[in-house]
Design a protein around this nucleic acid. Sequence first.
DNA 1: GTCTATACAGGGATAGAC
DNA 2: GTCTATCCCTGTATAGAC
Lengths: 213, 213
Amino acid sequence: MQAQESSALVTGKPATGPGSRGRYPKGVLRRQEILDRTIEVFAELGFESTSLRAIGEAIGVSHAALRRYFETREELFLEVLREKDRQALAAARADGTPHGIDFARHLDSFASQTPGLMALRHSMIARALEPGNETSQAFFVERYESLRSGAREILLLAREAGVLRPDIPIDAAAALVIATMDGLSTQWLLDRRVDMHEGMILFESLLQPPRPE
Amino acid sequence: MQAQESSALVTGKPATGPGSRGRYPKGVLRRQEILDRTIEVFAELGFESTSLRAIGEAIGVSHAALRRYFETREELFLEVLREKDRQALAAARADGTPHGIDFARHLDSFASQTPGLMALRHSMIARALEPGNETSQAFFVERYESLRSGAREILLLAREAGVLRPDIPIDAAAALVIATMDGLSTQWLLDRRVDMHEGMILFESLLQPPRPE
DNA sequence: GTCTATACAGGGATAGAC
DNA sequence: GTCTATCCCTGTATAGAC
């Protein structure tokens, strides 16, 4: 998929377009600064008002400069999400292998990301659902496949450990796990009185085998 | 909540602004025409490209004319969703009382609505999650409360009928039901290979009491 | 390589003519 | 009730400074 920052530094390809920036120190820093400020501006202003001009202003640069690093506004937003996914993946790996079913904890760590990030993701998914946004659609199709795949692994481990009802089909359950987290967080984002943690705990308990008593 | 068409007809308030149309035959028809065309144009063009000008063109009026009926583009889209909700509610009532847990069927009937409508809803929810869209936010907060309330009723009936695991907390389960339908349909909209019906059936089975064998 | 200045087409909102 | 004209804003594109 997208190249690592470090490997991009070594390829030494000639600069052929905006998408291939990031090879030289100043550009790398600038690019990162844009990504960082974008999420800040978005959290404050929302999707529509987070214009390239607004982001540029927050950095002290003209809006045209942003296009040296990102081909379109859409690409810029997608790259923000890609980077956050990379960070989350790295953090999860540092955390070691999961101990049993632990979806509620996953959901909590999502929530601890700024709500702004979750709202941005929601906005981009909405765009991906509409005609004519193939880039976004491809990103999210792949992302959800990856999320389901991760859920499958966890469920398989749980089944082996005997903490999952043995009659549950893994594939359907994996989609269900992701759906539950998505849906609960949407309700929570709209109305903080909704207890998404309780919902997730209930869902986990439904997956567990009946108590042997 | 929002007034019924019929009751609006009787109030007899003077027309004080764009939001209060719908009292006189021509206005009623025009208003309905706008709502109908909007969803058609949206399904074809998506959120961003469904401009007031594009909708006006589809009807044969200028974009400015639309504002006699809807204060803003946002209000127009919200009204489309309100009307679809009203229709769905009426259809559900005509269907009679639900027989036990039947969430999978509900989900299927959602899906049979045009995917364009579901995408529009997703776009509007995304906006509601961002700062400065209080109208949309209020609408969806209320809508989800209403959805959860409906789910609670069904779950209570199911518990009485003995088809629901008796240890399941109703409130948390209601949020979970809605979350599951939302989340599964999102995955399905992105990628039709996802079997949301199977997911919903699995979820229903998790709610059922253990087979007495 | 990085950035500014500038132009363009299109958007929502709005005022006032008819 | 509907129009046209206008306002300011947007993403995108290009030319050229340094």
